[in-house]
Simulated scan of single mutants.
Amino acid sequence: MDDKELQYQRIEELVFEYQAGSSKAGLEIIQSFGYDPATKELSRYIGKYFNLLRYGVINFKDKDTRLFIRMFVSEQAVRDGLIPFYQYADIKKAARKKVQMINFRLRHLTDEEIINDLCYILLKLAKRYKKKGSKKNFCGFVYNKSFRGELKTHYKYLFEDLLYSKDIEPLEDFIDEDSEITIDDKWYLDLYFEKETQELGFNWILGRTATFPFNQLTRFERTLISLYDHKGMTYEEVGAQMGYHRDTIWSKRKQIKNKIQELLKKPPCD
């Protein structure tokens, strides 16, 4: 039995313990799916849906995500285009437009409220779950349809007319999360010509004053750090400033963090 099977088996045990009245098991289920109430850290399944609902972050490689978006799409060509593993640019653009509408409908909810709703839905499914056959398990029950269907039902009062709604501004063009990003010096001059002496300003972004590990980053990556971490802009504000969609900024910042962590494991010799 491999690690994944052991994990599925452990979650299965937790579900039955939770059904028997164990609140501790309920907490462990939530943690297993990616949210730790103690540290407020988000990851895995719950993190995926939170980032989708709050920030519009779409992983098109994830079938579950594509099928959730598909529930809100009425155009048959787009519905069909979201089924295969690979999506063309027009399908992605239509999907992002629909997710933007979902984000707008949930704008009045706080981060904590969305997270609590996701945890509530997960535990609701845990209470409902019944074992059906030796090859079936709770994780499959959640992934295959139940969670995304329950999520849509939970927000029915907000999503009621979303399937056919067209009342939204068109999205700007954006790049996929795996694309390479480059930018020229003139853009930096326009943005930072008054800020050259700042610690993370123009000279730092160009790499002139950047020290390890930041001198190993690209100009785009240093610019994103300067705007988000130094100036305190939101993902949306950084995206507007740099001309990219906010979920591109979110994805790239995540990549930057991982890149820095890897660089710090192998510091340069003096």
Rank of each mutant, 00 (worst) to 15 (best):
K4C: 02
E5Y: 03
R10G: 00
E17Y: 03
Y18A: 04
G21H: 08
E28A: 12
E28M: 15
I30W: 08
S32E: 12
T39R: 05
L42T: 00
K48I: 06
F50A: 00
N51R: 13
L53W: 11
R54V: 00
I58H: 04
N59E: 08
F60Q: 09
D64L: 11
R66M: 03
L67V: 02
R70F: 02
R70M: 09
E75W: 02
G81A: 12
G81S: 09
F85A: 11
D90I: 11
I91G: 08
K92G: 13
M101W: 06
N103I: 07
H108W: 01
T110G: 10
E112D: 08
E113G: 03
L118G: 01
C119N: 13
C119I: 10
I121N: 10
A126C: 07
R128Y: 10
Y129L: 11
Y129R: 08
K135F: 05
K135Y: 09
N137F: 05
N144Y: 03
F147N: 05
G149P: 00
E150S: 12
K156G: 02
F159T: 02
L163V: 08
Y164F: 14
L171R: 08
D176I: 01
E180C: 04
Y188K: 02
L191S: 09
F202S: 11
L206P: 03
L217I: 07
L224I: 15
I225E: 04
L227P: 04
K231C: 04
M233W: 04
V238D: 04
A240G: 01
M242K: 01
D247K: 03
D247S: 15
D247P: 01
I249C: 10
I260P: 04
